[in-house]
Design a protein around this nucleic acid. Structure first.
Lengths: 194, 194
DNA sequence: CGCGACGTTGATTTGCCTCAACGATTGTGG
DNA sequence: CCACAATCGTTGAGGCAAATCAACGTCGCG
């Protein structure tokens, strides 16, 4: 089954899908393979779907009015990725979602997800819990950002996402931290000499 | 009924509670009045509840290792306020939630909320939708923060939350924007002279 | 009435950016 | 499978946005 990783994700939140629910889910998703550097969402698109990352890694970024990229977050296997803002308001997205590595995703369209919500309350519960966790992480992040220097943010990044260190370039990390690659280089040098 | 404003909030998301559900909710909440400058959550507390603001205004802030306050957000009437991070992990909170004005809240404890989730699927749906919106707003905010100057952030704040302008001090606004009150003063002067 | 919070101004400092340059790595098309 | 191009990581000089520190008048509240 395509959706086994999703079913396991439900299990992690102690929500167990029965065969009917699993089949409904299986019929709602489409598998897509994505090349390195390929975008699954462009600025200007309307985001009408959720994606579950089966394997690989994505970055979500915005391009500002000076043409600079700002990474909002990285998403690796076994998590959902979408532009919630666009998904909700049904307005065009300001974001790009791009594969950092060769990746595989399962996509579910808005209408199919809505059907699942209507038919099976477990989907509301699962996303309610998933969103609580995601929001808690987001808050934790802005909390840390607001009260730390760039050096502290870098160290915190390394602690929190050790598995990303080898998967994304320093350019990407700098963009995520909100500093220039040059300045990250200075920070790294300083840290080594300590 | 105490919970009328909450029932109306459900209605805004097209979720309509029946009398049984309303009664269950009514029996789950406790009304609290809060004085100006009184905290409903302190750093070190564990946050085991959600609060619905009936009237008034709160700020959620962190005190950093230099003793400075950093406002994460303001919450006014007809919205929920809690420390999701602490609520979830059941760990102690790093945050303070303090009334900016004399306020009234309805509090619901974790166990009572869990009972509602178990008995009535509408509650999962309501919070799923609520969290999607909240998370979309959070993302919108970090998106804007990451790619704007302090002046742009201040203008954006005024546009987005015009109703807060008269309710919270510039010290609070500066803390929310991530600048010092002195620098906000400079910005305001610059803007007037334009 | 008096005290503490607020808003403002100015002088000085600093964290991080910009721009420019260069060798090392990576990846890709021929 | 190699050669060339592109991206990456690093270093340095100079600049700017915002912080820090200090000072002072005003206002609202107890």
């Amino acid at each position: 089954m395509l959706v086994t990783p999703i079913v396991e994700s439900f299990s992690k939140f102690s929500i167990h899908l029965n065969q009917e629910e699993i089949n409904a889910l299986e019929n709602s998703v489409t598998k897509k393979t994505v090349k390195r550097r390929q975008c699954i969402l462009h600025e200007g698109d309307t985001c009408d779907h959720y994606n579950f990352v089966i394997e690989g890694c994505f970055k979500t970024y915005k391009v500002d009015h000076n043409g600079k990229e700002h990474n909002l977050h990285f998403t690796i296997e076994n998590s959902w990725i979408t532009d919630l803002g666009s998904f909700f308001t049904k307005k065009t997205s300001q974001l790009y979602i791009e594969a950092v590595e060769k990746s595989t995703i399962l996509r579910i369209e808005r209408q199919d997800l809505n059907s699942l919500y209507d038919l099976y309350p477990k989907f509301d519960k699962y996303f309610r819990v998933f969103l609580e966790r995601t929001l808690a992480k987001e808050e934790q992040r802005s909390l840390h950002n607001i009260s730390s220097t760039a050096e502290e943010r870098y160290l915190h990044f390394l602690e929190t996402y050790p598995y990303l260190f080898n998967r994304v370039s320093n350019v990407q990390i700098a963009s995520y931290l909100g500093v220039t690659p040059e300045f990250l280089s200075v920070l790294r040098k300083r840290l080594v000499s300590k």
